[in-house]
């Protein structure tokens, strides 16, 4: 669908170097990187808003590197500043439509609005929209333009948590309906919950492209490991348990109890290292998960120590204070119990 081949460019202090990646039709490709790494510049260069100095861009097999912006058929959606303030919602969505027949335009606007859930907001002024509504209008306009590839520049970062969840669901829906999405963000949760492929961006280039589980379980560089800040990231299956509000997450024969309202099936599990406690004997208390394992590593972290425990095919990392490490006499090779609550387990599916 979209093939980026060795593109390089320089704008002001920004420099992108030799960026290459492929996005297949139907992909949800998330580019993950810290703020200021050049993610937006990359998107704008794909859309043609910024000229590249080297490399090639192919869309649907066609070379578009030198193509005019208006002929690329790529939509770009920004955080919150891309609607035309002098037009109302209807006219914004209708902007890309060129037809002599008013009815044809109206039908297309209504269809795009209903797909994005803003059918009742068509008469509204842009300045009266909430953050979530704003993004929906922007997506509706891109749908009306008839483009099947959307570039999203941090589309969720200015939204409140509730709108964020709703908009994520909408993005998934659009993706399932056949829209290919390239989405840049600095938020790994967003990446995990949406992407089927993640590209990690560092120092003006893409350093690693892979499915989420590979990115987080086997970070290719120290930067990735540090930047994503993700530990205890597992891929497995969620199953409901009859007569219980808990569910079980199965990974490599290990059963972890989780408290979640996510549906069953293929999922990612995430446990913050702060949420895992270690003990010499199996703890009682409210934690539902207890696994006996062997300490394979003790490493100094920014604060305290990260203790890695192998519980059989799966490694868990716990963050402990140096006092705890000393009082438990933790050493590599020791047997130890790991304990964590079912509610400490975050599920993404």
């Amino acid at each position: 669908m979209l093939k980026i081949e060795n593109i390089s460019l320089k704008v002001g202090d920004f420099e992108l170097k030799n960026i290459s990646f492929n996005v297949d039709a139907g992909d949800y490709f998330v580019i993950l990187g810290v703020s200021g790494v050049g993610k937006s510049v990359l998107l704008e260069s794909i859309a043609g808003l910024i000229d590249i100095s080297e490399g090639n861009i192919f869309l649907r097999g066609r070379q578009i590197t030198e193509e005019k912006i208006q002929n690329r058929n790529i939509s770009i959606v920004y955080q919150d500043t891309d609607l035309f303030p002098h037009l109302n919602v209807f006219d914004n969505i209708a902007y890309p439509l060129r037809s002599r027949k008013e009815k044809e335009i109206k039908d297309k606007v209504l269809k795009a609005a209903s797909e994005t859930g803003i059918s009742d907001k068509l008469d509204r002024n842009i300045s009266t929209l909430s953050g979530g509504e704003y993004q929906r209008v922007s997506l509706a306009r891109s749908l009306a333009a008839g483009n099947d590839i959307f570039l999203l520049d941090e589309p969720l970062s200015s939204l409140d948590p509730k709108s964020k969840i709703e908009l994520r669901a909408l993005l998934r829906k659009l993706n399932r309906a056949g829209i290919t999405i390239v989405h840049v963000t600095h938020d790994y949760e967003e990446a995990v919950s949406l992407a089927n492929k993640i590209g990690i961006m560092e120092n003006g280039t893409i350093v690693h492209v892979a499915p989420p589980e590979q990115i987080f379980q086997h970070p290719k560089s120290e930067f990735v490991a540090k930047f994503v800040g993700v530990k205890n990231f597992l891929r497995g299956n969620v199953n409901s348990i009859p007569d219980s509000d808990l569910k079980e997450f199965l990974v490599d024969g290990i059963k972890i109890y989780v408290l979640t309202d996510s549906g069953d099936g293929d999922s990612f599990l995430l446990i913050n290292p702060e949420e895992i406690s270690l003990s010499i004997t199996s703890e009682g208390g409210s934690a539902r998960n207890h696994f006996k394992g062997k300490i394979t590593d003790i490493a100094r972290a920014k604060m305290g120590f990260e203790v890695t425990v192998d519980i059989g095919k799966v490694e868990l990392i716990a963050l402990l204070s140096s006092e705890s490490v000393n009082s438990l006499n933790l050493e590599i090779g020791n047997d130890i119990w790991t304990n964590f609550k079912a509610s400490a387990c975050k599920i993404y599916n």
């Binding site: 704008e44 859309a47 808003l49 912006i69 208006q70 790529i74 939509s75 902007y95 890309p96 333009a145």
Partner: peptide
């Protein structure tokens, strides 16, 4: 905002 002009171009406007 120059961005609005750019967005309009991506929407197919000359």
């Amino acid at each position: 905002p120059e961005r609005l002009e750019k967005v309009a171009l991506t929407l197919g406007a000359s």
